[in-house]
Amino acid sequence: MSRYFTEDHEWVDVEGDTGTVGITEFAQGQLGDIVFVEVPEAGKALTKGGDAAVVESVKAASDVYAPVSGTVTEGNPALADNPALVNEDAEGQGWFFKLTLSDPSELSSLMDEAAYADFVAKQ
């Protein structure tokens, strides 16, 4: 399994042609207490860089973009009742949705963990 990162602070874990997407630890820290997450429904087609989900803190709503193109297979059902999971475990149990990648070659444009750490250090 490999983990990739976007400059918009999403992560995607890829295993075969299945990806699991969430926002990074850095992003949840910047947002503060998360009070609502709107995840996409199964079957929704997403385009790399397009709107995929919405995350709401006390003070603002933020769009979450699809790190890669594909078709959603599942939104994280645990976030409906417990959006704070994103604060507690952004890069684990606080995942947003899973999708089937339609173009795995898109992954080459994303950052690996070390590159993302460098990117965040410059923020």
């Binding site: 999403e10 992003a27 947002l31 803190s57 603002a60 933020s62 769009d63 979450v64």
Partner: peptide, 9 residues
């Protein structure tokens, strides 16, 4: 994520 919410100075 949308950048505007993450930018500070």
């Amino acid at each position: 994520m949308s950048e505007a919410d993450l930018i500070d100075d």
